[in-house]
Each structure stands twice: as structure tokens, then as C-alpha cells.
């Protein structure tokens, strides 16, 4: 069954008709040609499909496109401003925070969303005092990024990149 939806994707308004079974990830990749969100596991376990959905990081493979009518989606592609990389993107480049690059757009969207969560004072599982503003040390970065897998194992440099971007 088809439904017409309107999304704002990386700053552009897009209206399209989708089969209700289409996930947001498939709508982006297969219907709109926005291929920076990647399909890894397609079950919400690897984080490669992470986008910013109405400003918050989310796995786009576990939500139907039709359920996101009128939403704002920002992918790694849409983070750059004036053709200059976003500070998190630049930090991944400077710190060699990837090898094959497949998980990288998801890592970067997740990191951008995560840094906003820290700014908002959200605690994590490893935050000592739930009431104090969290301090973003390496343990916090690892915990908060645990929903993004990197099969090349570039974790050490991903942590460095995020630490640098947070400064």
C-alpha cells in the first residue's frame, strides 16, 4: 500500500510516494539517491544507517518512512556547510578515524547527535553522578558510541576524533 510523504532531507524538501513497508533507510537510499546512510545489518545492531531525525540520532533501518512524514532528516552528506566539512567530519579525517569507510557516515551522524546529548547534560551508563553534567572522557565516548560498530576496528582513532571534535 502506498502513501505520500514529505521529508526535508539535507535541507531539501522531498515529496514522494512510498510503499508503507519501506524503511526510512531504503527510502533515502533507493528512492531519493541519498546513499551516505549505509545498510549494514538492517536490524538496528550496527549503526551504519544512523541519521539525525528531527535533530536526534536514530537508526533509519528500524523506522518506516511513512511514520516519518513531515520529519527533518540530516545525513552525513548534509552536515557540511559551504562545502566545508563539519568539525566532526574534519576530525575523522585528521585522526584517520576509519579504514574502509563503510561505517563512517553512521559514526559521524551518531557522534554529532551524541555531542548534542552531552551538551544537553544527558548522563550515560558510565556517568558516575547522574545529576552532574557529564565530562566527555574516553570511557564516556566509548559507551555513548557503542551503537556504532566498525568491523575494521578503527575504534581507537574514532575515539580520538570525537575527543578532538568535542574540544
Amino acid at each position: 500500500m502506498d502513501a505520500e510523504i514529505t521529508l526535508r532531507v539535507d535541507g531539501q524538501r522531498r515529496t514522494l510516494s512510498v510503499d508503507t513497508r519501506t524503511t526510512l533507510l531504503d527510502a533515502l537510499r533507493e528512492r531519493m539517491g541519498v546513499t551516505s546512510p549505509k545498510k549494514g545489518c538492517d536490524h538496528g545492531q550496527c549503526g551504519a544507517c544512523t541519521v539525525l531525525l528531527d535533530g536526534r540520532r536514530a537508526t533509519s533501518c528500524l523506522t518506516f518512512a511513512v511514520a516519518n512524514d513531515d520529519s527533518e532528516v540530516v545525513t552525513a552528506e548534509g552536515l557540511a556547510e559551504d562545502e566545508r566539512p563539519h568539525p566532526v567530519q574534519q576530525a575523522f579525517l585528521d585522526n584517520d578515524g576509519f579504514q574502509c569507510g563503510y561505517c563512517t557516515p553512521g559514526q559521524i551522524c551518531s557522534a554529532v547527535g551524541m555531542l548534542d546529548e552531552v551538551k544537553a547534560g544527558w548522563p550515560s551508563h558510565v556517568t558516575e553522578d547522574l545529576d552532574e553534567p557529564p565530562e566527555l572522557d574516553d570511557e564516556e565516548i566509548r559507551e555513548r558510541m557503542s551503537g556504532n560498530l566498525c568491523r575494521c576496528g578503527a575504534y581507537a582513532n574514532i575515539v580520538s576524533a570525537i575527543r578532538e571534535a568535542a574540544e
Binding site: 531525525l53 551524541m114 551508563h125 551503537g147
Partner: peptide
């Protein structure tokens, strides 16, 4: 905070 990941909790 012990459950799932940041993306899923959102």
C-alpha cells in the same frame, strides 16, 4: 541507560 544504544533509546 544500561539498555540498547543511544540511537535506539531516541
Amino acid at each position: 541507560l544500561a539498555g540498547a544504544s543511544g540511537q535506539l533509546r531516541n
